[in-house]
């Protein structure tokens, strides 16, 4: 490659990088700046006198705090634990027993979960949860998320399990361990990194989802931050823009933290798994 061409390619590269960075950063900029401003505005400006007053007001708002620190956590952690546990058991079984067509089965599951999704499934899910008497309960939300996210979780987990050597389990069995003992003392420690990934993935998904809690939860004191944020910013005629932005910033922090953690630990990349 000759020099001018090389220089041109470099310039092209940097121009591209700058454009992409700008395009992806700009919409987020407002969310980072507005909470510290004194005046409610949709405009992006660096606050001349940054203030934490908005955060103080948010912390005084019992409904907002309950949504974020109680409801969102109950639902996201609940679903996370359930999904991780069930997906691990299932994936382990699928990777260690021989069932005809099990690969196809997993693919079918994951695609099926993409088929039954979103607003299309909300009518029967609403009616089902009602029939089960679980409307307006954390349990109902956790169960629906578990059903929806499990296939992908199993898929990711199975990929992980298949990459584990079986020799440890075999030697445990040879040494007379029962199946349960083997699971607890050999398999569990080995699969922890995979469980971590699933857990974080499930947590982030539930934490950020809007439609399911919006439809299934009826009383304000059970709503998670996702629906609380929405109800704040659609509120008629209330000058609460800075408040909402402060709240939204608090709300995204756990996701941000988990991302940074995963990125630092493993590098954020595909394990063969995908987001639902």
């Amino acid at each position: 490659m000759n020099l001018p061409k090389y220089v041109l390619a470099r310039i092209g590269f940097y121009v591209f990088v700058v454009i992409v960075a700008t395009a992806f950063a700009l919409p987020l900029l407002w969310l980072l700046l507005a909470p510290f401003g004194r005046q409610a505005t949709l405009a992006v400006r660096i606050p001349s006198e940054p203030t934490l007053a908005n955060f103080v007001s948010v912390f005084r708002n019992a409904f907002a705090m309950r949504a974020l620190f109680v409801n969102s956590i109950i639902q996201a952690v609940g679903a996370m634990l359930l999904i991780t546990a069930v997906a691990t058991l299932t994936a382990y079984s699928l990777s260690r027993i021989r069932l005809p067509g099990r690969d196809m089965f997993v693919y079918m599951l994951i695609l099926f979960s993409s088929v039954v999704t979103g607003s299309a499934a909300m009518v029967p899910i609403f009616l089902l949860i009602f029939e089960l008497g679980l409307i307006d309960s954390h349990t109902g939300v956790i169960l629906v998320f578990t059903g929806g996210l499990l296939p992908v979780a199993i898929f990711i987990m199975r990929d992980f399990m298949q990459s584990l050597p079986k020799s440890y389990e075999e030697s445990a069995l040879v040494n007379g361990a029962s199946t349960l003992q083997m699971l607890r003392h050999v398999v569990l420690p080995l699969t922890r990194p995979g469980m971590m990934v699933i857990g974080i993935w499930a947590f982030v998904n539930v934490w950020g989802s809007f439609l399911i809690p919006f439809i299934l939860l009826r009383s304000p004191d059970r709503m998670p931050a996702a629906t609380a944020t929405y109800s704040f910013y659609t509120e008629a005629g209330t000058p609460v823009i800075t408040l909402v932005s402060a709240y939204a910033l608090l709300y995204i922090l756990p996701v941000l933290a988990l991302y940074l953690f995963v990125n630092w630990r493993y590098g954020f990349q595909f394990f063969g798994g995908i987001k639902s």
Partner: peptide, 8 residues
């Protein structure tokens, strides 16, 4: 790693 997430 687990400890880290748990502590969060």
């Amino acid at each position: 790693k687990c400890v880290a997430v748990l502590s969060v």
